[in-house]
Amino acid sequence: MNSNHEELVRRIHRDLADHYDEELELELEDHALDSILSDETGELLDEEKLQRRRYFRELFRLQGELVKLQSWVVKTGHKVVILFEGRDAAGKGGVIKRITQRLNPRVCRVAALPAPNDRERTQWYFQRYVSHLPAAGEIVLFDRSWYNRAGVERVMGFCTDEQYEEFFRTVPEFEKMLARSGIQVIKYWFSISDEEQHLRFLGRIHDPLKQWKLSPMDLESRRRWEEYTKAKEIMLERTHIAEAPWWVVQADDKKKARLNCIQHLLDQIPYGDVEHPSVVLPERERHDDYARQPVPDNMIVPEVY
């Protein structure tokens, strides 16, 4: 009996380890490979080992707080919109993955809208975003948002001067209206240097798993660095309002940017602990007249591994 209990505990621990391996898999995408962090002997440098350990410890702690935040949002009916803006390769997607990784997708969801179609281009500019706004007890993360008009559309000439100015006249009122309706709006700009974006683009070019992230628009944005900088400066100046202020995340260091952003996000919402009833696993019912039917061999996925 005791050995069965010990085996059960071991299996639970293994399952937990598999769960946290998801984060390690994401780190592989970021090229956090031991070979990259090694010295000439192939051993991880002590300081780098320590930094990675600190990063994972803090990330898992913050993700635990995000789970608490989620429970509070559901209980109170709070509504949250979080906008993530920044240059291509600034790390927006990385922090969004870490925020949503442990959360219920029915509570916390991501809106990453494609370019507008012909019909949407004739609508009120904000119309296609409105349908993605949260109901009570929901968090919505916009991976790019209505601020496309102030950035890529302006720089690439996808909107007229009149549309551009109308955007700036409308967006403060739009966000104030959201705030009055009970939606908390949090806006992040991920800031990276010219040199860092250059390195990240080179990394994507030479990584077959990431080449899909480089579109012709991304490459053109690299050439127009200064135009994007001017557009960003105007955007921050004209849309930084008390009801929905901008927050700038220094993002040259991906890991620090993730931790700083998540910690800041937690600080913006007055969440607290939510009591949950104790969970008791019920005994499974068994019936003598039921026999499990075997699955036909031709329906089983081959066990290649």
Rank of each mutant, 00 (worst) to 15 (best):
E43M: 13
D46R: 13
K49W: 12
Q51G: 09
Q51M: 13
R53K: 15
R53V: 13
Y55I: 10
Y55F: 12
F56N: 08
F56I: 12
F56P: 01
E58G: 01
L59Y: 14
F60K: 14
F60G: 08
R61A: 15
L62N: 12
L62A: 09
L62G: 15
Q63N: 03
Q63M: 04
Q63W: 05
Q63L: 04
G64E: 14
L66Y: 07
L66S: 08
K68G: 15
K68H: 15
K68I: 14
S71L: 14
V73R: 03
V73L: 09
V74A: 12
V74L: 15
K75G: 14
T76E: 13
G77R: 08
V80C: 11
V81F: 08
V81R: 08
V81S: 13
V81E: 09
F84E: 06
E85R: 06
R87M: 11
R87Y: 14
R87V: 11
A89T: 11
A90N: 06
G91K: 07
G93T: 10
G93V: 12
G93C: 09
G94V: 13
G94A: 12
K97R: 15
I99A: 15
T100V: 14
R102A: 15
R102Q: 12
L103H: 08
N104C: 09
N104R: 07
N104T: 05
N104Y: 11
P105N: 09
R106P: 00
V107Q: 07
V107K: 03
R109K: 14
A111S: 09
A112H: 02
A112L: 01
L113V: 01
A115E: 08
A115N: 09
P116Y: 05
N117L: 04
D118I: 15
E120W: 10
R121E: 07
W124V: 02
F126P: 00
F126T: 00
Q127M: 07
Q127L: 07
Q127T: 00
V130R: 03
L133R: 01
L133A: 02
P134F: 02
A136Q: 05
G137L: 03
E138I: 04
L141T: 05
R144H: 03
W146A: 03
W146I: 02
W146V: 02
W146P: 02
Y147D: 03
R149V: 00
G151Y: 05
G151E: 03
V152G: 05
V152L: 06
E153L: 03
D161Y: 05
E162C: 00
E162D: 07
E162L: 00
E166A: 07
F167E: 00
F167V: 00
F168P: 00
R169H: 10
R169T: 04
T170I: 04
V171E: 06
P172V: 02
E173F: 14
F174P: 02
K176M: 07
M177G: 12
A179C: 14
R180T: 14
S181F: 02
I183D: 02
Q184C: 06
V185C: 08
